[in-house]
């Protein structure tokens, strides 16, 4: 039932660090986060890890396990061989604060740059009427637990710090799609998705979809449809003409 596993865990702060070796007990049914906690309780009391619900619902314990972005609380130890060395490192796209904890403030900045839900001014609370089928598209995106692993894996910013100012990442491009598909949202989001949030940088490699712990089809259901909406509008001669007239008269 119980065995000793070999772990390599990234330790360090202030821009420096190294992989540290541990041998640690593993019991039946445990997940990687349990092992990190056991290390804290028995060998490394100041080992920093961010976590909260331990049930895959809050998206705090994002880390890279054997190089793959994963939630520590949802990665069962039984998915590894007993003699395998398991390497645990912080998310690579964000600056390390200490050990497995990264500075994810990039994400909160980007969230703030997406204009909020904008309902028509004349609809009062309690008056909203929406069909289930019409809310389901946005509901899928609202399953997001903000683990930020999609932004972490996205090659546009993973090794390209210089792209960060112009690119909001899959998480917030999906947020824009969510609002654009909300039955009552009246804000114009398609142009800004392209111009201000960097939708054009995405070349649909679907890495974000693959790492999503909520299994949201980020690329197929949010990013590609959003690209199509942008393109339709850019090249639709009627929309183009409408824009021209609107701009001239305003």
């Amino acid at each position: 039932m119980s065995y000793k596993a070999k772990f390599k865990v990234w330790r360090g702060e202030g821009g420096e660090g190294r992989l540290e070796d541990f041998t640690v007990e593993v019991n039946e049914g445990e997940v990687v986060l349990d092992i990190i906690h056991r290390l804290q309780a028995t060998q490394a009391p100041d080992l920093a890890v961010r976590w909260n619900c331990k049930a895959g619902k809050c998206g705090s314990c994002s880390m890279e396990i054997n190089g793959k972005p994963r939630l520590g609380c949802m990665t069962r130890m039984s998915t590894f061989e007993e003699d395998e060395t398991i390497t645990v490192t912080p998310m690579r796209t964000f600056p390390v604060i200490k050990d497995l904890v990264t500075d994810v403030s990039y994400n909160y900045q980007k969230a703030r740059e997406v204009p909020s839900f904008t309902p028509p001014a004349d609809v009062r609370p309690g008056e909203f009427r929406m069909k289930q089928v019409d809310v389901e598209r946005s509901q899928e995106f609202r399953k997001c637990i903000e683990c930020f692993m999609c932004n972490n894996i996205c090659h546009v910013i993973r090794d390209h710090e210089e792209n960060k100012p112009a690119f909001s990442g899959p998480r917030f491009l999906m947020r824009i799609a969510e609002l654009d598909m909300h039955p009552y949202d009246v804000a114009d989001r398609q142009e800004t998705a392209q111009e201000e949030h960097g939708l054009g940088y995405c070349n649909i490699t679907k890495c974000c979809t693959e790492v999503c712990p909520e299994h949201i089809k980020i690329t197929d259901n949010a990013l590609i449809p959003m690209k199509e909406r942008v393109v339709d509008r850019k090249y639709d001669p009627l929309v183009w003409l409408g824009n021209k007239i609107f701009k001239r008269t305003s």
Partner: peptide, 23 residues
């Protein structure tokens, strides 16, 4: 009820009844 309806005006998307209200 007012507090729930207010959430909807702030962007919450609850499951719906057949006539489009909050289920």
């Amino acid at each position: 009820p007012d507090r729930v309806w207010e959430l909807e005006a702030w962007g919450a998307l609850f499951d719906r009844t057949k006539d489009g209200k909050i289920s």
